[in-house]
């Protein structure tokens, strides 16, 4: 449910190091709380994102939530398949449900994010 190789933000985003880049999505906890995701609004590639500043929006039928960037950097790729199949955010939040790929300004920023055990404590779940 909560992969060990990811880092987590207090706003329920996950971040995965892939070489010198960082892939970003939302956690199973966030996706469950939103219920069925119907729409994801993402920035265009090339957009600058700031640590813990909103970069997009995720919506269910009755709720809307800002997405926060877990690292500062430049968006190099966005998951365009979410336009047609937003439901993968619910069914596969760490795989097909990824949202943006970021070229971070400072890769060390990842260290500020939580490891899985700490995130589990935040959401009140057992490891």
């Amino acid at each position: 449910m909560y992969p060990k190789d990811l880092r987590y933000s207090s706003e329920h985003e996950w971040a995965r190091s892939e070489g010198d880049r960082v892939r970003v999505g939302i956690t199973k906890f966030a996706a469950d709380r939103l219920t069925d995701v119907v729409f994801v609004e993402l920035p265009a590639p090339g957009t600058k994102v700031q640590y813990m500043q909103p970069f997009g929006v995720v919506e269910s039928v009755k709720a809307v939530s800002d997405l926060y960037a877990p690292v500062t950097g430049t968006v190099v790729e966005v998951n365009t398949t979410l336009k047609e199949t937003p439901e993968v955010v619910n069914t596969d939040p760490y795989g097909k449900g990824w949202m943006i790929l970021v070229q971070p300004d400072n890769p060390k920023e990842m260290d500020q994010l939580m490891p899985v055990d700490k995130y589990l404590a935040v959401i009140g779940e057992k490891a």
């Binding site: 729409f39 919506e59 269910s60 009755k62 709720a63 809307v64």
Partner: peptide
């Protein structure tokens, strides 16, 4: 598409 509307998005 009610998430556009005030009863959900409020000041946004």
């Amino acid at each position: 598409l009610q998430t556009r509307e005030q009863h959900i998005r409020r000041e946004k």
